[in-house]
Amino acid sequence: MRTITITANGLSREATVEDNELLLNVLRDKLGVTNVKAACWRGECGLCTVLLNGLPVKSCMTLAVEADGKEVVTAEGLYSDERARKLQESFVEHGAMQCGFCTPAFVVTSHYVLSRDPEIDGEDLKKELSGVICRCGTYYQIYDAVRDARKYYKELPVRV
């Protein structure tokens, strides 16, 4: 057992964890960040994607101890970023979900993708989002929602 510190969605939190615990399980079970989802626990579905120090990782393939001293952001933690709020609204406007289980993962992933390249389109966009699976198959609505939100990432300041 050891105590680690994770800044989860802006709040600095301590958790006592075993070395073999997954970041995913610690976020959900110990830090109450239930906004991060999971389906496969083997790196395939991408539903457990979080931003670790700003970069997307699959938290089911990441050890909790690896996040010690780092910042973890899930979709709900993006709320302070106006661009990301507009992105989430775009998901709603385009009906880019059916059951909604994949939405948090698509929101953090597309936020990362748009922050890097607000011009992204076509095959490049599809490839960049290919690490997350939507079982309900709302891909076209997701692509439309993300494409539509590009303007906010071009126009709005990075953090508000």
Binding site: E18, D19, N20, L22, N25, R42, L63, V65
Partner: peptide, 16 residues
């Protein structure tokens, strides 16, 4: 969580 697949956990080890 204890239901489901073995992928949810990793057997114990020490991290160095």
């Amino acid at each position: 969580m204890s239901f489901g697949s073995p992928y949810m956990t990793i057997p114990k080890f020490s991290y160095l």
